[in-house]
């Protein structure tokens, strides 16, 4: 129990469209332990980034309900000033696009020092500079003294992502949220950045939430995985179990749509990801995309069921799910 770092309970994050609020994250309950990597997988519109931004409370215009507690402090209710003490210190974030996440008019060194200055007043000017250079070395930047004085546009994408990581780990955060940290990078650079995150995890012992759409990245990095669809967690399991024994129809479909060895045709999920405004709010949210599964197999109010130790699945439809093996069957299912 004392191992628990982050607890999210019944989280609901809603955005205003017109006069109404629509929940992008709807009833998410999760925990993250110290020193653990939790992968969150989903496609665009699944609410995974909205979830990350909710934890950091970085949404400027969203309604957040429920509970997010980091070391037993509820972030949802927290005052702005308290929040600013925690952000960048106890929890930090790595962003998706290294080309835009740094201030173009500020030298690299100053951008790292800012977070040191905000959370460690004892460190003097000289101390901050030393620490900034130490951090640049730590994230594998050669010639750290020189980079310290450079501006973002003088660095490559991979280098900038390293700087962003240096900023995130500057104050040894306990919780590190990485929002698609390698999506904008080349594969070889991606491998290097993932290596770096893994190494740092050993050094700073942070709990990491890794948000990605790339199942391969999750398979390599995560201890546990949560799969999100339409604002909800549909399945959560230890990483081995999720890839060996995926249960939810969405997880299975997703795994089948990635090109792998010896596959002739990729699986295609019927229909499209519903937009925020058109999300089904009642019943199984994935039901409309597997119309061949009989309606009676879905729960009216799907909840997460523990099917094996630590392995949860939403709704009971997984028990009756199968891939229609030909088109005919598929069409029969629709009619």
């Amino acid at each position: 129990m004392s191992n628990e770092l982050l607890k999210i309970k019944n989280l609901k994050t809603s955005f205003r469209i017109g006069d109404e609020y629509y929940a992008a994250v709807d009833d998410v309950t999760l925990t993250l332990n110290k020193n653990e990597v939790l992968g969150i997988v989903g496609e665009s519109g699944s609410g995974k980034s909205a979830l990350a931004f909710s934890i950091m409370r970085l949404h400027t215009r969203a309604k957040i309900e429920g509970e997010i507690s980091l070391n037993n402090q509820n972030i949802v209710q927290m005052s702005k000033s308290k929040l600013n003490k925690i952000r960048g210190d106890e929890m930090a974030m790595i962003f998706q696009d290294p080309l835009t996440a740094l201030n173009p008019l500020m030298p690299i060194g100053r951008q790292i020092e800012e977070t040191l200055f905000l959370h460690n007043k004892k460190l003097g000017q000289q101390g901050r500079k030393e620490r900034a250079i130490e951090l640049l070395n730590l994230v594998g930047i050669l010639r750290a003294e020189r980079v310290y004085e450079q501006f973002p546009h003088e660095l490559s994408g991979g280098m900038r992502q390293r700087v962003i990581i240096a900023i995130a780990i500057a104050n040894d955060p306990e919780l590190l949220i990485a929002d698609e940290p390698t999506t904008a990078l080349d594969v070889t650079i991606q491998a290097q950045i993932l290596d770096l995150i893994r190494e740092l995890k050993e050094k700073i012992h942070a709990g990491i939430i890794l948000i990605t759409h790339d199942l391969g990245v999750v398979a390599e990095m995560a201890d546990r995985v949560a799969v999100m669809y339409a604002g909800q967690v549909v399945e959560i399991a230890p990483v081995d179990r999720l890839f060996e024994n995926p249960l939810h129809p969405y997880t299975k479909s997703l795994l089948n749509s990635v090109p792998t060895e010896g596959q002739d045709r990729l699986h295609v999920i019927q229909g499209v990801v519903p937009t925020l405004k058109n999300l089904p709010r009642t019943g199984c949210r994935f039901a409309e995309r597997i119309p061949w599964v009989d309606a009676s197999h879905h729960e009216d109010n799907p909840t997460l069921h523990e099917v094996e130790s630590g392995h949860f699945v939403r709704c009971t439809c997984y028990e009756h799910f199968y891939f229609p093996d030909n088109k005919e069957e598929l069409e029969n299912g629709i009619s």
Binding site: L58, G88, F95, T100, A101, N103, I164
Partner: peptide, 14 residues
């Protein structure tokens, strides 16, 4: 801009 989010995530006050 994105770097404003970065600044907020560092814990900088408004």
């Amino acid at each position: 801009r994105d770097f404003i989010v970065t600044a907020r995530a560092k814990g900088a006050s408004e």
